[in-house]
Design a protein around this nucleic acid. Structure first.
Length: 497
RNA sequence: GCUCCCAUGGUCAAGCGGUUAAGACUCCGCCCUCUCACGGCGGCAACAGGGGUUCGAGUCCCCUUGGGAGUGCCA
């Protein structure tokens, strides 16, 4: 008896082996990330293997360096494949263009078995057929023109070196069905299926053929892929049957949408994983968020590390309907990750942003980090949050008017003058000392804290909202700059009174 | 057009025949507070429509509507 592995109540009679099979056409985008993640998790949850296969059978769409980008992204995410082009494995090669002879051999075998046939039709003929179909409002299907060719003729034309493709034979009548672990039984009429190309003129297979051959040879089970393959799955089953191969379990994943109508795509801009990380999103937050887009653990948990996902994941929680990517919620989750991060790491990550914001040399950046950590959602918002520490912008004196603190232009002026006086004589410019003299002042005035601190903070920052309060800001600015700014405030108010 | 799939608040989602239909994000209010944020408390907001089946339907079936995917010598 082989191993028994349980997926959604069904039994797996063999080792679980899943594969992520991107085509190297660019960077890994969010949808690809989620497919890779779920595929990986299904393998890990079942103590199986996860492999990476590069599907580069479309030589025209190849993008230089794209495969490396995929390695890089997966590594960043923390997904490690057990077999793949870069690390090898018992079922290689794992790059389809390097498997060319294999597909030819199997395509020929399929012709022998009656599951496929040679086709010599020219592009022009197919184009006009397709045009005709569109005109008649019909689905295009190859008309089987070359299907009836007798063996001798085929042989002769092949020997003459005529270009050819190999097409799949589809039964004219009857139905074909397949079972998806998520969607259940799906049945289609064979008459709606096209006798598509399996092996192209250039000798490379189409996806429709390569995926079946490779998944079988690499012992992939279950086959996990996007729901865009749902409608061609019957054809794959027909292929497995024609070869006499065992049909794998299928798990088709719903899509990630940009909005209700458009699916998330590279063309719409920032949809790649690296676009998000470069904006200041943490990879852990991205992974966590994406994991929950289309999957639910079934309980109230929403924070997961990769390791926790490996434990918790179950295809029962997969959603059949497409999910809309909500950057707003990603922002929130990223903010949560930042809050939970240790201070040292946050400081390290924030440093480059301080640099680009132009924070002064001598400033206590650790303190800045302390103030920011609980307030930042995405790292790239740091520069504008701290800009006031660099320059005091020209601000509207109406900022001094604040109802809750009972601040008016007059009171602000008076309090600023008093604050200036006590601060001017302060030698130890530490947060504690500043706090002490200002608190003493407040006590002396028998006022509310904010009556004094509101105008101080406004004068020190020129902004209505700041990370940190007045005392913290004065401390960061240093005595000289602080006094200068307070004086600016005093002058502004004086001019207005 | 044809084929297939999907359908709970604005978004992510729990729910698997009997619930006051969870929770999270967003938004709003209150509290806390040296501003903001955090935190705490509270609130707005959903079963697309119509037929069945059933004692009883968000949950099962059918139709309609809406949406998505496929329809390539792309994957």
């Amino acid at each position: 008896m082989k191993d028994l592995l349980i997926i959604k109540g069904g039994l797996f009679m063999q080792e679980v082996r899943t594969r992520f099979a991107p085509s190297p056409t660019g960077y890994l985008h969010i949808g690809g990330l989620r497919t890779a993640l779920y595929t990986y998790l299904i393998a890990k949850k079942n103590k199986g293997k996860f492999l990476l296969r590069i599907e580069d059978t479309d030589q025209e769409r190849l993008v230089e360096g794209a495969t490396e980008l995929i390695y890089k992204s997966l590594k960043m995410v923390g997904i490690q494949h057990d077999e793949g082009p870069d690390i090898g494995g018992p079922y290689g090669p794992y790059v389809q263009s390097e498997r060319k002879p294999i597909y030819k051999k199997y395509a020929e075998e399929l012709v022998e078995r009656g599951g496929a046939y040679y086709c010599f039709c020219k592009k022009e003929r197919l184009d006009s057929l397709r045009e005709q179909a569109i005109k008649n409002n019909q689905t295009f299907q190859y008309d089987g023109y070359c299907k009836g060719l007798d063996k001798e003729e085929v042989k002769a034309r092949l020997e003459a070196g005529e270009p050819y493709v190999i097409r799949q034979v589809i039964p004219k009548t009857g139905t074909t069905s397949f079972y998806d672990e998520l969607f259940g039984e799906i049945e289609v009429e064979n008459s709606t299926l096209d006798e598509g190309v399996l092996l192209k003129t250039d000798g490379l297979p189409t996806y429709n053929f390569a995926n079946v051959v490779d998944d079988h040879l690499m012992k992939i089970n279950p086959v996990v892929r996007g729901s865009e393959y749902l409608s061609s799955a019957p054809k794959y089953n027909l292929l497995y049957q024609a070869f006499g191969w065992e049909i794998p379990k299928y798990i088709h994943l719903s899509q990630i949408m940009k909005d209700a109508h458009k699916k998330l795509s590279k063309r719409d801009g920032d949809a790649s994983v690296e676009d998000f990380t470069s904006k200041g999103y943490l990879i852990e937050a991205i992974v966590n968020y994406v994991a929950l887009l289309g999957w639910s653990p079934g309980d109230e948990r929403e924070f997961f590390t990769l390791e926790e996902l490996e434990q918790a994941f179950d295809i029962k929680g997969l959603s059949k309907s497409p999910a809309i990517f909500d950057e707003n919620k990603l922002r929130w989750m990223n903010g949560e990750y930042i809050k939970r991060m240790d201070e040292g790491r946050f400081h390290e990550m924030a440093l480059p942003y301080y640099k680009s914001a132009g924070l002064p040399e001598g400033m206590d950046l650790q303190k800045v980090s302390q103030l920011l950590k609980g307030r930042v959602e995405v790292l790239n918002e740091i520069p504008e949050m701290v800009d006031f520490l660099v320059n005091l912008a020209d601000y509207d004196i109406e900022l001094y008017v604040h109802k809750r603190s009972k601040s008016t232009l007059e009171s602000s002026y008076e309090n600023l003058v008093k604050a200036y006086k006590v601060l001017e004589t302060l030698d130890d410019w530490s947060e504690d000392s500043i706090k002490k003299v200002l608190f003493d002042l407040v006590e002396e005035l028998a006022a509310k804290l904010n009556f004094v601190l509101w105008p101080v903070r406004i004068a020190a920052s020129g902004k209505q909202i700041t990370p940190g309060g007045g005392i913290e800001i004065l401390y960061l600015l240093g005595k000289e700059e602080s006094l200068r700014r307070l004086q600016v405030g005093i002058d502004k108010l004086k001019g207005a009174l």
